[in-house]
């Protein structure tokens, strides 16, 4: 196959899939990885793509929708992707409400033998078409203005259940008052969930730190694992380190600086 032809096909694949990997392409075309790298170099100089760690993505200005380029959205996606890797096959997890958990649900849609319990209707909808994910929605009443369920019905429906990992996205985290959510009902539910498991994971984006919310859920040191990004404020980082909290910070090494 001529180089020109291969370049053309790489372009087509990229337009379709938005990102490619060097190893994958070298298998597809049966040429060495360094040949593929050179091809990608050429296309990068044309401005068609942007090389990433181990592959390439379509140059953003040509396709990416504006909301995908929003730093907060990108940050949440990063967190969700890392959190998704924490979920093993055959596990039962709880997903609390909130945009980060919603993204996590999207990342988990392709998994097999997974049980997701959630009190968020949006998450349930997100996973509705996932063929191998077993979704269980709690009962209870809708919290006004959200898609989240809470109340005695919700508490009732998780009684007796046990989770491998609950993923929570509190809306506030304060050094003194700990994690908190906006409504008492939600807080109650979360406390009930955390009471029955050890491996709780808090997903924290930049909006959370230093913000107070009405109903406290747990102290900062009580949730043993947090997933966040390098926007984690210094004082929080110091606190977590001092209290033996496992801090995962998600990076986007494959596509750094994609924000532009």
């Amino acid at each position: 196959m001529f180089t020109i032809e291969r370049l053309q096909r790489i372009r087509r694949i990229l337009l379709e899939k938005k990102r490619v990997e060097v190893t994958e392409l070298s298998q597809v075309f049966g040429v060495s990885e360094s040949t593929i790298r050179r091809d990608l170099d050429k296309l990068e100089k044309e401005g068609f793509l942007r090389k990433t760690y181990g592959g390439a993505v379509l140059a953003e200005d040509s396709v990416v929708a504006p909301e995908d380029n929003d730093p907060l959205t990108m940050e949440r996606t990063k967190i969700a992707r890392l959190a998704a890797d924490m979920v093993g096959e055959g596990e039962a997890i709880f997903l609390g409400g909130g945009p980060v958990c919603l993204r996590l649900a999207a990342c988990l849609a392709g998994r097999q033998r997974l049980t997701v319990v959630t009190n968020d209707l949006e998450i349930a909808v997100e996973l509705a078409e996932a063929p191998y994910v077993n979704v269980k929605v709690t009962g209870g009443e809708l919290i006004p203005g959200t898609f989240s369920l809470a109340g005695s019905g919700a508490l009732e429906s998780i009684r007796g259940l046990c989770f491998n990992k609950p993923f929570l996205a509190p809306t506030g985290a304060d050094l003194k008052f700990g994690y908190a959510v906006p409504t008492l009902g939600e807080a109650q539910l979360i406390r009930a969930v955390t009471a029955v498991t050890q491996e709780i994971v808090a997903l924290l984006d930049r909006t959370v730190f230093g913000r107070l919310a009405l109903a406290p859920v747990a102290g900062l040191a009580e949730i043993p694992t947090v997933v966040t990004t390098n926007l984690l404020p210094h004082d929080f980082k110091a606190f977590y380190l001092a209290h033996q909290v496992k801090v995962f910070t998600a990076y986007e090494l494959a596509q750094p600086g994609a924000r532009r």
């Binding site: 930049r206 390098n230 926007l231 984690l232 404020p233 210094h234 924000r259 532009r260």
Partner: peptide, 8 residues
Amino acid sequence: ATQGALAV
């Protein structure tokens, strides 16, 4: 870190 990333 916050400033570093926000002040792109």
